[in-house]
Design a binder for these strands. Structure first.
Length: 520
RNA sequence: GGUCCGUUCAUCUAAGGGUUAGGAUUCAAGAUUUUCAUUCUUGCCAUAGGGGUUCGAAUCCCCUACGGACUACCA
């Protein structure tokens, strides 16, 4: 039985996707691609009350940024497919648009005795729950209470019809069997067993918005869309028995998908799962893209914070998964090749923002200079600086290994574009002596007259000159660096000078000399 | 409270019953460098506790503790 691998990522558009959701999407994507299967994007918008405008677009954009492209579920315009075509045979992929479909399945369950209509109101239920718990008992809506309530199980057929016709004062509940051990299998956790007595009669059909609940829609769609593997967050593990039982009730157990529940992402500090608040509190993004909530509140995004999507994806992949080797830096192709569901860790992972930075640095370091130049040019233009691509690329080449983000480039390389106006106090104190200006002038002359004007040649003649005059490497080089850079940092001084060029070097020396004179 | 899942350095994790318990991030020290950074070297640091099973347990079993999720007409 060689079933086609088909997985789905099924977020609900209640807000931006956070890191955990992105990881779930990534693992689904990797798994599908590795097996030559399909990766389907489905929108689970069966809660009209929690719908947030823009969330769906955000989800599509975020996946796109990461290079996680669904091969089913999107229309040619890049949006969620709303109608079926050759490319999207199982459309629509928004559950709200699949609404007409679900009702019959719910009714089927009622007809076959696996579900029933319940006529109690939310208020009655609340009351019942309160009194039960006040009596020290825990309230479970199951066989022990369902017979005492008004349901289709204890109401004559004509009266049921009457109630159904008289309005929407009803829900459909799953009739949880009594005292059954449900044995389930999870690809990551192994066998899990639960007794049905601890479970309750979950609502499958909501009166409030006349839509199925997650549980019903999810099972029906996974079946109809021929999903082979359900890879989702651990928060769904407690509802797995219900899902098993639903497949059974529909008679679909034979084609039921395999399940894998991913460990949760925990706060970097303290207790509990990672939340939006932690990002604000600890100063790191929890969302892939910047998100502006309908109320105007802005949440940072990895993209806007200057992370490369490759680095972000790489970081995500290593959250709760590892290849068993010591490799940490992966392209998405490499990830696709070596990802194994069985190697996903069982325990929750504390999220570490530091490691995310480290990954970005790894990618920055290996990125070609001309690509970096394209990213840096807009920053320069914003500062009214015009420089050739070749020049900017050379600058990037010299500073990239000391940066984590392109954003760091300016502070690391401003002196390649503008003369320093301020000088590091400590370095001035240490290296700027009364005789220094004279030495700098002579050194500058020497440098200006060196032919060819190359790093090697400059190094050779400068070293010889310093030695000949017994001036001390540190004293001359640091003072010279102070004039060029303004501080004691940066790449090799002769690298800088050569890139700056003879003319600019001269200007820089006289400019700084004048400034430093007034400082002293 | 109930149900389920989990527990190896500060953090992410490796170790199919037999290793001085390995790597990475962070931190610290040293080397290299004219400086900063990179790089390299080194260091610090862990099997939650208690019982079993076994010649031998991080690994299998039980108990305890701790952590997490779930417990809606949310997903």
């Amino acid at each position: 039985m060689n079933r086609k691998i088909r997985v789905r990522f099924a977020p609900s558009p209640t807000g931006p996707l956070h890191i955990g959701g992105m990881r779930t999407a990534l693992f689904n994507y990797l798994f599908a691609r590795q097996h030559g299967g399909d990766f389907i994007l489905r929108i689970e918008d069966t809660d009209a009350g929690r719908f947030v405008p823009g969330a769906e677009t955000y989800i599509v954009e975020a996946l796109k940024w990461c290079g996680i492209t669904p091969n089913e579920g999107l229309a040619p315009d890049g949006k969620i497919a709303g109608t079926a075509d050759a490319q999207n045979p199982h459309a629509p992929y928004r559950q709200s648009q699949r609404k007409p479909l679900y009702r019959q399945y719910a009714e089927q369950l009622v007809a076959n005795g696996y579900a029933y209509y319940a006529f109690d109101t939310a208020e009655e239920l609340d009351q019942l729950r309160k009194t039960t718990e006040a009596g020290g008992q825990q309230f479970i809506y199951n066989y022990s209470v369902r017979n005492h309530l008004q349901t289709s199980l204890n109401t004559p057929i004509d009266a049921i019809q009457q109630r159904l016709l008289s309005g929407n004062n009803w829900v459909i509940r799953f009739k949880m069997p009594e005292n059954r051990e449900v044995r389930m299998y999870d690809l990551i956790r192994g066998e899990v067993t639960v007794n049905t007595n601890t479970l309750d009669d979950k609502v499958l059909w909501k009166r409030i918005d006349e839509l199925p609940t997650y549980h019903l829609a999810n099972i029906v769609d996974d079946h109809l869309m021929e999903i082979s593997h359900v890879i989702r967050g651990e928060e769904w593990l407690p509802s797995l028995p219900l899902h098993y039982l639903l497949y059974e009730a529909f008679g679909w157990s034979g084609s039921q998908p395999a399940f894998a529940h991913l460990p949760l992402l925990l706060k970097p500090d303290g207790k509990g799962k990672l939340s939006k608040r932690d990002g604000d509190r600890l100063g790191f993004p929890v969302f892939p893209l910047r998100w502006v909530a309908p109320d105007g509140e802005v949440s940072r995004g990895y993209r806007e914070d200057g992370y490369f999507p490759q680095a972000f994806v790489n970081m995500l992949a290593l959250l709760g998964w590892n290849p068993g080797t010591e490799q940490e830096v992966f392209t998405i192709e490499e990830l696709t090749a070596c990802f194994r569901l069985e190697r996903v860790v069982k325990s929750g992972a504390r999220f570490n923002p530091e490691k995310a930075k480290w990954f970005n640095q790894q990618y920055l370091k290996t990125m070609p200079d001309d690509e970096l130049a394209q990213l840096y040019q807009p920053v320069l233009r914003a500062k009214n600086i015009t420089a050739s691509d070749a020049y900017v690329a050379a600058v990037c080449g010299l500073v990239k290994e000391r940066a984590t983000f392109v954003e760091n480039f300016w502070e690391l390389s401003s002196y390649f574009f503008v003369a320093p106006e301020n000088f590091d106090e400590k370095i001035v104190q240490k290296y700027w002596k009364p005789e220094t200006p004279d030495i700098i002038c002579r050194a500058a002359d020497l440098i200006n007259n060196t032919i060819p004007f190359t790093k090697e040649e400059l190094e050779k003649s400068a070293h010889a000159w310093i030695q000949r005059n017994d001036l001390g490497m540190g004293a001359v080089m640091n003072a010279l660096r102070l004039c060029i850079v303004g501080a004691s940092k940066g790449p090799g001084l002769f690298d800088i000078i050569v890139l700056l060029g003879n003319k600019k070097f001269k200007e820089r020396i006289s400019h700084s000399l004048a400034l430093l004179k007034s400082v002293k």
